[in-house]
Design a protein around this nucleic acid. Structure first.
Lengths: 239, 239
DNA sequence: TGGACTGATTTACCCACGTTAAGTTGATGA
DNA sequence: TCATCAACTTAACGTGGGTAAATCAGTCCA
């Protein structure tokens, strides 16, 4: 059940069989959700963290007028709220973008296992820091990249992250976000997302259609985005 | 030396005298830097983390054409690169905004002390998660807030964070960023920052001049920003 | 087989913010 | 006392992306 999660961890740090065993025993429950459901509501005390097994989820914040900013997209193998282990409540909502399957890890169990294995504690600490690194790259996009580069960036990042967990390759990946949701990731309106997606298609860079992203020219995509994957920390090493 | 840092920690979690003692002994060195110096360069392996004692620093990323996005502003008491403890190298540069004094904490010492005190490990884990929460609020600003709200937001956040460490009150705080730098925080040009700062002054909300931010009407400032301080996690509790 | 949706697409128009280019102010110091 | 320089300020004009309003194209049932 944890295969994708272990793939994600192993890409960045050695994971002992011992840790994997202990983690498997922590799962208190698995759940299924439909699309567009809030799974972790903001400002509500949490007693477990949620691991995404299948499907897409996101975290978002919004303003009073309803304009929404997705702050991160989650793919299978990601903890969607590992940070609730130390924060206790979240400053944002976490919702499903597609139907999903998730597993719950009680905080009490996480506390015990991270006290027993300090190296595993650092691996998870690292993983929340990786989320922060992704936030920073998105801040750069939202603050300084133009629309084409923002969308190219989003596609580049997801191609890499999905590739790690076996859900994508150089040709592309399944990508179920609507154009409205892509706009909520990139700080654009659906109309401008549509214009920009068309530009990327006409330039022979990437093609988005019906839940699928085809990467036609990965080098060109990375160039458009000024994508530098080092912020995803892809070397395996002790943490 | 660590008074401000302890104030920051104590605002969110109980800090035992024992921890404070152990931390004080970890400091390997203190250093002074002039303004506009890179203190932690991106993509260079780090063996210690840097605590800001006096002055202002920031972390930033930039694009090939030189447009820069400041991803976080640091005030005295903040670790500017605690995340390098697990990440090993940073995906961004860390620089001074004013002359500063910093203290260095070797990663090896941090490893030992966090293994000895798992609760202290969680306090520092929490602190890197707090940085991520600030990144998310900035993503919301950059993606969805308008110029006035972005600047109001920045001032609101800094007033709270500086207040915690005794460097500001309801009347305002010393704020040495230039208008160019404020633009680099908020994704705006210096010209538009200038227009917007004038609007805030003319509306009687806040006044920026010569290194000082005077908050004329805090309620109005928070309203402009839609500022909700819960993302700063200001309750003291076990982490 | 044909509504009823949801999401994609396009057009026309508009505006918040960017760009460029002059000043102006104030601190520093020879 | 004047030169210099960095930061601030303002004005005129341009544009990337927003807004509003249709239309189109699948898909899902009844």
């Amino acid at each position: 059940m944890l295969e994708r999660h272990i793939l994600k961890l192993q890409a960045r740090a050695p994971v002992l069989a011992e840790y994997e065993q202990a983690l498997g025993e922590l799962i208190s429950e698995t759940r299924d959700y439909a699309a567009d459901q809030i799974v972790v509501p903001a400002y509500v005390e949490q007693v477990h963290s949620t691991l995404l097994l299948e499907g897409f989820m996101c975290r978002y914040k919004d303003l009073a007028d309803g304009r929404r900013q997705i702050t991160q997209v989650h793919v299978p193998g990601d903890f969607v709220d590992l940070h609730s282990f130390t924060l206790k409540y979240l400053d944002q909502d976490v919702m499903t973008l597609t139907p999903v399957k998730v597993a719950l890890f009680p905080h009490e169990g996480l506390r015990q296992v991270t006290e027993r294995y300090p190296a595993l504690a650092r691996i998870y600490w690292f993983n929340t820091n990786l989320d922060a690194a992704i936030h920073r790259e998105w801040e750069l996009s939202l603050g300084r990249r133009k629309a084409r580069a923002r969308i190219a960036m989003l596609l580049s990042e997801l191609q890499v992250r999905l590739g790690i967990v076996g859900l994508g390759d150089d040709a592309g990946f399944d990508f179920p976000l609507t154009q409205v949701e892509i706009g909520e990731c990139t700080g654009l309106t659906n109309v401008h997302v549509n214009r920009t997606v068309r530009e990327l298609r006409e330039a022979g860079v990437a093609e988005l259609r019906r839940g699928r992203a085809d990467i036609l020219d990965k080098a060109a995509l990375w160039r458009e985005a000024e994508f530098d994957p080092r912020y995803l920390y892809l070397q395996k090493r002790e943490r």
